[in-house]
Every structure is written in C-alpha cells, then in structure tokens.
Design a protein around this nucleic acid. Structure first.
Lengths: 187, 187
DNA sequence: CCATGCCAACCTACTAACAGGTAGGTTTGC
DNA sequence: GCAAACCTACCTGTTAGTAGGTTGGCATGG
C-alpha cells in the first residue's frame, strides 16, 4: 500500500482513540514500519499531517453522507442512517469521530486544521438542514421545528453522545442519548 | 490564598481551556508563583492532581445544581438554569466544563480520575431525571417522554454543544444547539 | 544496450525543548 | 527544634524536527 495513505490511516486510527496530542511520529513509525524521520518526507510537520488527515476525513464523511442519501427514501430513514454512522464510528466505545477527537485538542491545532473542522461542521449542518426540510415535506419525522436549529441540535447531540460514550468506553451511553431522537422517526 | 487551592484553581482554568494534556507543572509554576518541584509537595503526581481537580469540580457543580434547584419553582425554570450553567461555563467559547475537557483526554487519565468523570455523569443524569420527572407532574416542559432518556439526551446535548462552541470559539454555536430544548419550556 | 544523472524514498544520528518526577538542602513560623 | 513549605539542581524519557548520507528505480543520451 501507498506509504502516505498508510500513514494517514494509522494517524487517523490513533487520533480517533487518543486525540491529536495522543499520537506521535514514533507511534506512526512503529505502526507503519518506516523510521520516524522518514515520515517527515511525506508530511513535513505534524500540523500538515493533521490538516491532511482532517481534510481526508471530511471528504470521506461527505461521501458517506451521500451514500446514506442515495440508499434511503424518507427523511426518517436518512436520520437513522446518520445516527448509525456515528454509532458505527464509535466501534464499541473505543474510537470516536475524528472531528470530535480533534475538537478536544483545539489548542494544539493550527489554523488550517481548525478551518477543516469548521468546514466539517458546516457540511454536516447543511446536510442535516436539508434532511429536516425534507422531513417537513414527507412528514416522516415528528414535530419538526426550525430546520437550522434541528440540525444544530442534532449535530451537538451525536457529538456529545460520542464523547460521553468514549469517556466510559460504553456504546450503550450513545444509544441511550440518541434514543429519543430516533423515537421521533420510528413510532 | 492557600497554595493548594491556588494550584487547583490554575490547573482547572488551564485544563478547561486546553485539556488535561494541555497543562504542565511548568505552567502551574508560572501561574502560581512557586517552583515546579514545589508543586509535588502538594500533589505528588499529576494523576493525583487530576483526580483532586475533578473531584472538587464535581462537588462544586453539585452545589451549583442544588443552588439552581433552590432558586427555582418549576421544572422549566430548573432546565433553563441548568443550560445556563453550561453556557456560563463556556465564557464566550474560551473554556468548557472540566468534565468535557477531561473526557477528551481520557487516555492520559488514571482510573481514579476516570471514575470521577463517571460519578459526574451519574450525578448529572440523576439530577436531570428528577427534573424531567417533576416536569411530568407540573407540566412545565412540553412532551416529556421517558425521564431517563430525556436526561441522557439533555446531558449529551449540552456537552456536545460546548465542545462545538469551544472548537469554534463561538458561544452562538452553543446557543443555537440548545435553542429547541429551551423552546420546549419557554413557549 | 548500457552509462549517466536524477530524484523520491528511505535511512542513521542528532538536536533543543519540554515532560513528569526525584534528591536533598534551606527557609519560615509555630 | 521541628515540620511544612519551598528551593536548586538534576534525571530520564519523549517530543517534533533537522542534517546529511544511502538506495533503487526510471529516464535520457551516446
């Protein structure tokens, strides 16, 4: 496999378990099998690696969202798919969404990476807003209020649920926290 | 002021801005005005300091919750007070709840501190569950479902809203994310 | 077809800064 | 005179990052 991709893969895996400050070039070196110094050949600084990692994550998450949209018919199903993405990302409580993981260590990130996080949020909010707009039309989600606010609430909820579930290494925490949201569609 | 208290104050302030990995004994030394080595006289290890910090935070938050309960008459007012606590803790987006801050760096925490985080969650959930139980009686919050689930959802929401608001250093993100929750009481 | 040059990819060996923590001595106030 | 509180000076390990050399494959020109 391409070394650069392997580095991004390992960095993402560890970052999603331990945060941005939680992985070092030494960790990556061990995981990928090249010397620490050689990593700098692919990513000159950790900041550059961080940005590349977050950018790739945002794009692949965007793809996943498109996939959810393509594979569902109602807004309700789409919401189930969305929450499912976050639940899957938990992997039993051991890992979290990269965006949540990096948000925590915001002080060690450079502006470019922070900007990627903002773009991730904006992308998610726009996707959710469309979802709730559609829900108003197809009536598949109960008592939808302002779509923008529904989107903001929904994103904060899944991110917070992930954070808590990860803190306790228990996916049930996530399930409980999102149950009422999903109850608005499954009744 | 008591040096030990000053150390806890500084540690909490920095931890709430930058996380547990985000502050060092050197930082505390500079903030409090004693030498790095002297800090070990008060807190032998950083793990001990972390636990003491989280324990103190949990207790003082418990007090704040009691205060909210004492100062309000309806479940609705209590919920407003609760969300207000989290919004105040943001201080414009610069700091977050210590529990959210430490949850992020869970891998650098020892078991005692993780346990404090669990106790914080349990305490919050119990308090919120009572709140929603009372809301069912006094009818001051719209369409309350299962109280346990409402509590889990509410806690995840405010923690997630804090995380996002902090990531973007913008308190409005918190306000948007919690607006619909508060709309259930202010209508 | 082979010599030359070139460059990406990797290496060893190092640095300066910083982390948490320790050993052991000094100050200060009851 | 004793102990809590603080100090200087140090240690070991880890961090991101750098300097500079080696390797191996590919393209070009004779």
């Amino acid at each position: 496999m391409d070394t650069k991709t392997a580095l991004l893969d390992s960095a993402e895996t560890i970052a999603r378990q331990r945060g941005f400050d939680g992985f070092s070039y030494a960790d990556l070196s061990a995981a990928v099998g090249i010397r620490k110094a050689s990593i700098h050949h692919h990513f000159q600084t950790k900041a550059i690696l961080g940005q590349a990692m977050m950018e790739r994550y945002r794009i692949s998450f965007d793809d996943a969202l498109s996939e959810v949209k393509r594979g569902t018919n109602s807004a309700a199903d789409r919401l189930r798919g969305y929450v499912g993405l976050y639940q899957d990302a938990l992997q039993g409580g051991k890992t979290i969404c990269l965006c949540v993981a990096l948000s925590s260590d915001r002080n060690s990130l450079d502006d470019a990476t922070l900007n990627e996080i903002s773009r991730f949020h904006a992308m998610s909010l726009a996707w959710l807003e469309t979802l709730f707009d559609d829900a108003k039309s197809d009536g598949s989600i109960k008592s939808v209020m302002d779509s923008k606010l529904e989107a903001a609430q929904c994103l904060a909820l899944v991110e917070g649920a992930q954070l808590m579930a990860h803190a306790q290494h228990d996916v049930d925490v996530f399930i409980s926290a999102t149950e009422l949201l999903l109850a608005r569609v499954s009744a």
